[in-house]
Design a protein around this nucleic acid. Structure first.
Length: 734
DNA sequence: CGGGCGAGCGCC
DNA sequence: AAAGGGCGCTCGCCCG
């Protein structure tokens, strides 16, 4: 074994992979370690399943020797955040500083869209990687081995550690080799595309090593007593609200249930009811192509005598209690004491659209009637059960998504968030903690109470507090900078209000000011005008058309078009930037952010080359093709795709640069804190906000470091502002 | 029963 | 005639 290890250690670049008992880096165990160099590969088992329990192997010392030596190597891993954290936690060896490359992030830098799993990448680039395995066969074999040894192999309970050790060893070694192949393949591309510095030096990997992984490792303390109290209280409120809703529904009919069953599950000798009857009486009928029982007359007649048969032949009625039993079954088991599940959109739609006869306003993408908050609002004055239902829905969301989840996922009172660098095209983090509701100051009292408590669940550790710095309207600042429009940039450089200025210049408003301190500041004297501008200031540049704008603002479409035209006229350099972007998308099929991150959209080029600009003219498309069925559908689809590429190309340059600004400032902050030996760490990064946890006595020093780095990390035509605030929890540090 | 997906809603 | 962009989580429902 030692000899094999030393063979591997001759290489400078080494791929590493672990096999573990599960996915929790703090609870699960490493069962084996795999490594590969260009010439060799090796798997060292640490724990082996012995039928009833995991037993340590004789190789623990060898593994330790290997891992210690790896500290001086250049490590390549696929999803290193996972392997390195579990190695550190379980085996006590920190290899983060030896991390040379993560192939997920390498792939993402060069191909920003999925797949990102090692095997899917391999399949997609099989030829280039010399990959000749079949991952579906492999997972089947693994599954079979797990199950043969009495283990479970479902997604939520994948007991890999129960598979035969030689099977695990083979796959682990192969994955290590594959990681190395992926590394070699994409490294060439990285050089070809001139992204070496972007990846290794300026952003991707430094962010990973100095921010993302430490941030996930540290986690955030939760106020467990407070969450538990909130759960009790909200549960109580939900029970009361549900009763109100259910009682309200009942008042619309003396016998709602009977009506409901009659309409939704009519007693018939065919269709769903017949199926239910056949199942109830266990009638031995032939099965049709669609998997249903055939209740064709001939088939039924050949059955032995039974009530079910007589009913299906129309010879007798079924007893009322059996009918109700069958209907109840078709309706589905209901929750608790109520026959309607008010969490079920399906049930509510039947009540509102079928029973009460309300007309739906809109359809979902798949064509179903839309039953969302805004629709319910619109009919709430007509029915007493809707207002409590609206509150119930909000509270239910809060309870499930923000109270129960954090209770369930807390580990010793700490929540460990995910910060994925490969889950967004723009380079933002993909995280499970960025949707915490913002504190609100108006609305229903109960909704307010629970909405505003969520952020306060996240608390600083004892003797610590949070330094929380948000960029002031980061997206508009970046937008003004990237567009190159002098007029837009002047807004910020003259300290004016963004939306007010654009509204005044676009709509030629008079006697109002964009100066926030002025007596006739638009946001003060005509709040709604400023609010309207919010609907289009960024929307129009990102591709919103008059059709949608007219709906959003509830104005005539010609008026909306004129708004768009006036906006473009008022900021001519913005228009030029939009045109330049569109041209780039159509001609070369990609756009690049100011710091070099790319978004590739090759399909735009092929569509444009084939059809030219005319494909974007939906009216022309309609005139030319609407009588040609499928062809028209195809052309519409192409229009949508190209339009989408263009919109994405515009949005990407803004969103991606904003992400880079936040990312790079985070790197600089953590590096400076470390260099100055201040024990403070970024614990959360959300789009335009950075939260650092530090000791109380360091707060001023930390705040200065945070603000200075955030405001100066990238020089732009518009100066960025990121004033810090302090707090003991996420709610009051904002 | 487990997995996938649509709908809805939270964030920037 | 007609889709501003980027995400993640939960639920109910459907299907294999």
């Amino acid at each position: 074994m030692r000899q094999k290890i030393d063979e591997i250690l001759k290489s400078d670049i080494i791929a590493l992979d672990t096999e573990t008992t599960g996915l929790n880096v703090r609870k699960d165990k490493v069962i084996g370690v795999g490594v590969a160099s260009d010439a060799h590969s090796l798997y060292i088992p640490l724990l082996v399943w012995e039928g009833t329990e995991l037993q340590p192997t004789q190789y623990l010392e060898d593994a330790n020797y290997l891992l210690q030596q790896l500290k001086n190597k250049k490590l390549v891993l696929h999803n290193a955040a996972y392997d390195l954290r579990i190695i550190k936690h379980d085996l006590g060896i920190d290899l983060l500083s030896a991390l040379h490359c993560d192939t997920i992030l390498l792939k993402h830098t060069l191909e920003e869209t999925p797949p990102f799993s090692l095997k899917d990448i391999a399949v997609k680039n099989a030829k280039a990687l010399g990959y000749d395995r079949d991952p579906t066969e492999e997972s089947k074999e693994l599954k079979a081995s797990i199950e043969a040894n009495g283990g479970k192999s479902t997604k939520d309970c994948y007991e890999l550690y129960k598979a035969d050790v030689n099977v695990i060893a083979r796959y682990c070694e192969q994955d290590c080799k594959l990681t190395l192949a992926v590394y070699n393949y994409y490294s060439k591309k990285l050089i070809d595309e001139g992204l070496v510095d972007f990846y290794y030096k300026d952003e991707v990997l430094p962010l990973y090593k100095f921010v993302s992984i430490p941030m996930m490792e540290r986690g955030i303390k939760l106020d467990m007593p407070k969450i538990n109290r909130a759960k009790e209280e909200i549960s109580f409120d939900l029970i009361r609200l549900e009763k109100e809703v259910q009682d309200g529904i009942k008042t619309y009919s003396s016998d709602f249930k009977a009506w409901f069953f009659e309409n939704e599950y009519p007693v018939k000798t065919n269709g769903n009811f017949a199926q239910a009857v056949a199942n109830y009486y266990e009638l031995e009928l032939p099965v049709t192509k669609t998997g249903k029982l055939s209740v064709a007359r001939g088939a039924v007649e050949s059955l032995p005598e039974s009530d079910g048969k007589s009913f299906l032949l129309g010879h007798m009625q079924l007893p009322a209690d059996i009918i109700e039993e069958l209907q109840m079954k078709m309706h589905g088991e209901t929750v608790g004491e109520y026959f309607i599940n008010i969490n079920s959109k399906d049930h509510l739609k039947r009540i509102i659209f079928s029973f009460l006869g309300e007309k739906p306003e809109r359809h979902t993408e798949k064509g179903a009637y839309q039953l969302d908050d805004s629709y319910l609002q619109s009919i709430s004055h007509k029915y007493s059960f809707i207002p409590p239902l609206l509150v119930y829905n909000k509270l239910n969301k809060i309870k499930a998504t923000y109270i129960e989840r954090f209770l369930k996922e807390s580990e010793n009172g700490i929540f460990y968030p995910q910060f994925n660098q490969h889950r967004t095209i723009s380079g933002r983090f993909g995280s499970d903690i960025q949707q915490l509701p913002r504190n609100k100051d108006s609305g229903d009292e109960l909704v307010l109470k629970y909405t505003n408590i969520i952020r306060s669940f996240f608390i600083a550790r004892p003797y610590h507090l949070f330094v929380d710095s948000d960029y002031e309207s980061l997206e508009p600042h970046i937008f003004a900078s990237v567009s190159g429009d002098k007029g837009l940039q002047d807004i910020f450089n003259n300290n004016m209000d963004f939306y007010s200025t654009i509204a005044i210049m676009t709509e030629k408003l008079t006697n109002v000011s964009a100066d926030k301190s002025s007596d006739n500041y638009l946001g003060k004297v005509d709040k709604e005008a400023r609010q309207r501008a919010k609907a289009y200031c960024l929307g129009i540049p990102y591709g919103m058309e008059s059709f949608k704008l007219s709906k959003d603002l509830d104005i005539d479409q010609r008026e909306a078009q004129s708004l768009i035209d006036q906006y473009m006229k008022a900021f001519p350099q913005l228009k030029q930037w939009m045109d330049r972007t569109d041209l780039a998308v159509k001609s070369v099929g990609y756009v690049t952010s100011l710091v070099g991150r790319k978004r590739r959209m090759p399909e735009a080029v092929s569509i444009f080359n084939k059809h030219g600009d005319s494909i974007l003219d939906s009216l022309q498309l309609w005139k030319d093709y609407h009588e040609q069925g499928a062809l028209y559908e195809d052309m519409k689809e192409k229009r949508w795709k190209l339009k989408n590429c263009i919109n994405n190309g515009r949005n990407f340059q803004i969103q991606s640069l904003a992400a880079s600004v936040v990312n790079r400032s985070s790197i600089a902050i953590n590096l400076e804190l470390a260099a100055k030996n201040i024990k403070a760490f970024i614990v959360c990064s959300v789009h335009d906000q950075t939260i650092v946890e530090c000791r109380v006595e360091d707060k001023e020093a930390v705040a200065e470091i945070v603000q200075r780095n955030m405001e100066n990390i990238i020089k732009l035509p518009v100066k960025l502002k990121a004033p810090p605030s302090f707090g003991k929890n996420f709610a009051d540090s904002h």
